[in-house]
């Protein structure tokens, strides 16, 4: 019984990392129409930042080992991911949308290369270990620790969800959607389209960085292998399946697709012998690719459709 509960808690904790990232992507893609192909890059920046800030000292790194309190690690993660987004966004958000896609893709790959090669910062392929897990050691039981961590995750997701819902209902959010629908018209109305798109991009990426930090500190170990392009793809599938432009849909998509992913791992793992591990992974990726293709072709609006949002000001008047 406790084993089942423990598995479910563990599953939910992981689902919350994905859901939070999907929420960040929803602000960028769902509400603003910015195609970020470098999600994993911002996620990794967050994870590494928090690892450097909160982790123990290692004999072979230049900085790090600061051992700071975890909220500082989480906030630091948001700041560095946000700065990376600011730089990329500043250069590419004025250009054609494809350029943002290509540039964010480049960020994702570059971050991985830095993680792999800049050993005096990231310890390269050896990874950073013994990262402190927030809220652990309060009780004797690992299960209770995990439950506490899940509560922390849910609280963070709740706070971000609340903030995003307020943001998209504010006049700012209204402009955001106006930009997504018709950039030229919004520009003609005197809106600073560039600044608003940049804000959305930076905030969304900061949330992705936060999610990365939450994963890194929970597992206690990060290495370049944790941040592969498949992650970006999974998050996109989550958002498309859940319903882009709908924050609840984003959270739901994260849960559902992560559930399918984990479930398929169990099933394929049970069917195929362990020697076919590579093949099993490939089959799963092909399957999730098919889900995306079918979703794009037959249900582009996702499980939950976008809500018609009326901002508070408009309702009052």
């Amino acid at each position: 019984m406790e084993a089942y509960l423990s598995t479910i808690i563990f599953f939910l904790i992981f689902a919350s990392f994905y859901s939070l990232t999907t929420l960040g992507l929803n602000l960028q893609w769902g509400f603003t129409g910015l195609f970020n192909v470098g999600i994993v890059g911002f996620y990794a920046i967050g994870a590494y930042t928090s690892a450097i800030l909160t982790g123990p000292p290692y004999p072979d790194t230049l900085i790090g080992g600061l051992g700071l309190w975890f909220p500082i690690g989480f906030i630091g993660a948001m700041v560095t991911s946000g700065i990376a987004a600011l730089i990329v966004g500043f250069i590419t958000l004025r250009l054609r949308e494809d350029f943002l896609a290509i540039s964010t893709f480049g960020i994702g790959l570059s971050i991985q290369l830095v993680a792999l090669n800049f050993e005096s910062l990231t310890r390269g392929p050896n990874g950073m270990y013994s990262l402190p897990r927030p809220l652990s050691g309060i009780s004797e039981s690992n299960l209770v620790d995990n439950i506490l961590y899940l509560i922390l995750c849910l609280a963070i997701i709740g706070a971000v969800y609340w903030a995003f819902e307020r943001m998209v209902r504010s006049p700012w959010g209204r402009v955001l959607r106006a930009i997504r629908e018709d950039e030229t018209a919004s520009a003609a109305l005197g809106k600073n389209v560039f600044a608003i798109r940049l804000q959305s991009f930076v905030v969304g990426s900061a949330v992705m960085g936060l999610a990365g930090a939450m994963q890194g500190n929970f597992i206690g170990f990060i290495s370049p292998q944790d941040f592969l392009p498949i992650f970006t793809f999974q998050v996109f599938v989550m958002l498309i399946v859940g319903g882009s432009g709908n924050n609840m849909g984003a959270l739901l998509g994260g849960l559902v697709v992560w559930g399918l992913w984990s479930f398929s791992e169990q099933v394929i793992g049970a069917v195929l012998p362990a020697t076919f591990n590579t093949e099993a992974g490939a089959v799963r990726i092909v399957l999730i690719g098919l889900i995306l293709a079918l979703a794009l072709l037959y249900r582009p609006e996702g499980i939950l459709r976008e809500k018609r949002i009326v901002s508070r000001e408009a309702r009052l008047s």
Binding site: F35, D98, F236, V237, V286
Partner: peptide
């Protein structure tokens, strides 16, 4: 072709291509 006929946004095409890329790599592996 179906996406073009539906006049899908360019971004949808990019995403479809992104998905294909992953599928293609893994099909080759398989």
């Amino acid at each position: 072709r179906p996406l073009r006929n539906r006049k899908a946004a360019r971004i949808t095409l990019i995403m479809a291509a992104f998905g294909l890329s992953l599928m293609g790599r893994n099909l080759v592996t398989l």
